[in-house]
Design a protein around this nucleic acid. Structure first.
Lengths: 333, 333
DNA sequence: CCCGTTCATCGAAGCGCTTCGACACCGAGG
DNA sequence: CCTCGGTGTCGAAGCGCTTCGATGAACGGG
């Protein structure tokens, strides 16, 4: 409970018998320092347990060494992916000696304004950017370094990172086609997600449809309660009795879809093949284990931070799409 | 892209024709300022779009107005609860004019050390504290204001917040007993969680067992893949043919348990009543909708922040347990 | 042997804010 | 009429750090 007077750079300087600025240069490496002096300083740092004061450092250097992570945190989000993403962002940021300030989208554009103007953060990572997102114009105007996860309608001059969802949808369709399936369906996100204009759902559907040229292919939204899923699945097979391939792009519904198929007496993969677009652990936990396309949330987080750091250093940073990866398991043939 | 020279308090003072300190006092309210001056200053603030520089403020006032949120972010966590919690922490912190720095537990005690010593944050919120947590002794020694979510073995002198899991377990048992069930079972967390000594799983079991005095009651760990769950459920009914009441304290397994019961031809609630300990949305999404005990993640987050703020103001803050709430739906009779 | 370089280090000037003590002004009480 | 205690405001001293320009020592080339 004792509140020790905190150790300052001056204490370190005194202890090592050098000037304050010398300590600073040892720590930042911005000027050459002789090996012996450096050694002495570092020892003093260790001996005193010195940690630079973040506020003072930020004030003097105009760099807070903190980035903001703006998460949607609204209903209907894909939580596991979000968490993986957040984890990898934090870990990667730490590698670059930065910390992460957590913000929720419900603070809105003002929140972004606030943290940027107060120099609380050096840059921004915005997740789940929508096709027409009110934050995008602000971001442009602010000129604050930022990286978006997802692609807004007009991505010109912005740095965006995302999974290539069109490719993911296509991959699924192609895999089913290669298995000889002639009639396939995509069970997508809940209807509200399409209405909101979240790009990824739309792009998956487009990729799926385009790749299914030549086959009979339908794409339908999919809610997330068991009863609604069961209903949707039943309807699907009523309308398309010849359906033998199913793509599920809705993590919360995956389990329900399998249960519904079981209830309908259709076995997987004998009667119907199922491909899911979801994290590996969900696919592996299902029965049978699902052939799936991975959402590489960790890579996305990692790349996003990498790009942001480049921008902070004044380097150019181009948008990028990450390649989806198909893993074949037991649910398709 | 234009990088505007940022507006400082000196600019505001000049614009309003007052001293810098006057502006500061208007903004902080720490000294009386005449209504007219205050008005003038606030107008200048608005006119110039002034936002105080966070670093400078932190340096001068020794308060960063940031708290750290340390999340486990390891496998096997209950994601939705975590997110709800995080969201409410951020929202509540903002109400107190604080921001939230996100940290993951894998930085370990050094991470805590670092942010505390560098005055990056004023206080800490640790989630998912284990019975014997290596961070607890450090926290004691550091004397940094903190609030823990969960109870370590020795909670003396620490402020902890948690759901009253013992009560939650008891509530489930009592509800089943009241429904006339004589033979009941608890399906708990995966075995590894018990081995890790995470308190909540253990405490739920204890509460359940104690409240089930007079009934036949068993408690078993429960893994999270469909196949393992189905196996566990089958075994349970093989060994206890008279079993009619089930408590599930494992969010990831809830769906699988229901599916397994369906597969065994036991209908809910006719043959067996099921109570889940999980968030409401999971309970409602199941079929039939589950009678459940709510984990009030939002309240926990809110209270945790409230307590931490009190500590930052030098006020005392006692540990507290939050009352669980049973909602009766269609899965029990 | 002197001068121009290079290398290592130092001192001091801020960065933008809070806070303390001082001060001027005003009305009330003696 | 003078003093006293509030009020409202100001000026200046830091907070702990980075960074710029200056300085001194060591050194090689002419």
């Amino acid at each position: 409970m004792r509140k020790v007077r905190t150790v300052t750079i001056a204490d370190v300087a005194r202890h090592a018998g050098v000037a304050v600025s010398t300590v600073s240069y040892v720590l930042s490496g911005k000027r050459a320092i002789s090996a012996t002096t450096r050694q002495r300083v570092l020892e003093s740092v260790r001996a005193l347990g010195y940690h630079p004061n973040a506020g003072a450092r930020a004030l003097a250097s105009k760099r807070a060494n903190v980035i903001a992570l703006v998460l949607p945190l609204r209903a209907g989000m894909n939580l596991p992916v979000l968490m993986q993403f957040a984890t990898s962002v934090v870990a990667t940021a730490r590698q670059f000696d930065h910390d992460v300030l957590l913000m929720t989208a419900d603070e809105g554009p003002e929140g972004i304004q606030r943290v940027a103007a107060s120099a609380l953060v050096d840059g921004l990572l915005l997740m789940d950017v929508e096709v027409r997102d009110p934050r995008v114009p602000l971001l442009r105007e602010l000129g604050e370094p930022s990286v978006l996860i997802g692609f807004p309608a007009d991505a010109d001059g912005l740095t965006c990172v995302d999974l290539d969802f069109a490719r993911a949808g296509a991959l699924c369709a192609e895999h089913l086609a290669a298995g000889g399936h002639r009639e396939i369906a995509l069970l997508g996100a809940p209807r509200v997600v399409y209405e909101r204009g979240t790009g990824f759902a739309e792009r998956t559907r487009a990729g799926f449809t385009a790749a299914a040229r030549g086959l009979t292919a339908v794409a339908v939204p999919c809610e997330e309660t068991y009863d609604e899923v069961a209903e949707t699945v039943k309807l699907l097979f009523d309308r398309h009795p010849g359906l033998t391939g199913l793509v599920v792009h809705n993590e919360a519904a995956v389990g329900h879809v399998l249960a519904a198929l079981r209830a309908l007496g259709r076995s997987v993969p004998e009667d119907v093949s199922v491909v899911a677009i979801c994290p590996d652990d969900v696919a592996e936990r299902a029965s049978p284990a699902l052939t799936s396309v991975l959402i590489p949330a960790e890579d996305v987080g990692h790349e996003a931070v990498r790009l942001l750091m480049a921008k902070l250093d004044g380097l150019p940073a181009d948008s990028m799409l990450l390649e989806p990866r198909l893993t074949i398991r037991e649910s398709t043939r």
